[in-house]
Amino acid sequence: MLLTVSGPPGSGKSTNAAALADRFDLDHVSGGDIFRELAAERGLSPVEFNELAEEDDQIDRDLDRRLRDIAVDRDDVLLESRLAGWLAADHADIKIWLDAPQEVRAERIADREGKPVDVARRETSRREDSESLRYEEYYNIEIADLTIYDLTFNTARWGPESMQHVLATAVEAYDPAVDEGKAPVEDVVYEF
């Protein structure tokens, strides 16, 4: 089974992806973890590395290609990244988008990273704007287009355990036979 979990920073992607991967015994591959590791290797914060990626498109392209290869070549994996649904659009069994209002996400990030909420809000907004522009420029992907996703949730509406229960119930109820013989949702081929 290949699952994808996508969404903006602070939406609960990592928390829910880790819980789903554990519940369904899937390898959890996090694009965010890889991105942060690459930033740390260069001695940069994720925000600084994101700004560098604006100038050097190879950073995004290498990360996205690596994640796409995982989606194509591996089974029993949960792929988590902002573009995971797009990267695995024609291979994923279930594509999930998680979101929450910006204020909720900023509070979560501030709590997680030990910074003031207003700083988290500014950094997150800047990061989202930057990524959105790059995805459009590189791949002609409108990140706000959620039509490729099978499930979309506002995670501010449920606590972490309840959200994990809802997601697990949806995955357990998935019947691959329903998808047999159907045309792919997206005809567009993205070059990652």
Rank of each mutant, 00 (worst) to 15 (best):
L3S: 07
V5L: 03
S6H: 05
P8M: 09
G10M: 03
T15M: 05
A19Q: 03
L20D: 04
L20P: 08
R23I: 09
D25I: 09
L26R: 00
D27L: 13
H28D: 04
H28I: 08
S30D: 04
S30Q: 03
S30G: 05
G31Q: 01
E37D: 11
E37C: 10
A40G: 12
E41I: 07
S45W: 03
V47Y: 01
V47E: 05
F49H: 00
N50I: 02
E51R: 06
D56V: 14
D57K: 04
D57C: 11
Q58T: 15
D60F: 06
R65D: 13
R66T: 15
R68S: 14
A71Y: 05
D76S: 12
D76Q: 08
V77I: 09
S81R: 00
A84M: 02
W86D: 03
L87K: 00
A89C: 12
A89V: 14
D90V: 10
K95M: 13
A100C: 06
P101Q: 00
P101G: 01
Q102Y: 08
Q102L: 15
Q102P: 15
E103P: 06
V104M: 01
R108M: 06
R108G: 10
R108E: 08
I109P: 02
A110V: 06
D111T: 14
E113F: 03
V117N: 04
D118A: 11
D118M: 06
E123V: 09
T124M: 14
T124R: 00
Y135Q: 07
N140W: 08
I143S: 08
A144K: 08
D145P: 12
L146S: 11
T147L: 12
Y149G: 11
Y149W: 05
D150Y: 09
A156M: 03
A156C: 10
R157P: 15
R157L: 15
W158K: 04
G159N: 06
P160N: 04
S162V: 14
H165C: 13
V171D: 08
A173V: 13
A173N: 13
A173Q: 12
G181Y: 05
G181F: 13
G181S: 09
K182Y: 14
A183E: 13
V188M: 03
V189W: 02
V189A: 12
Y190R: 07
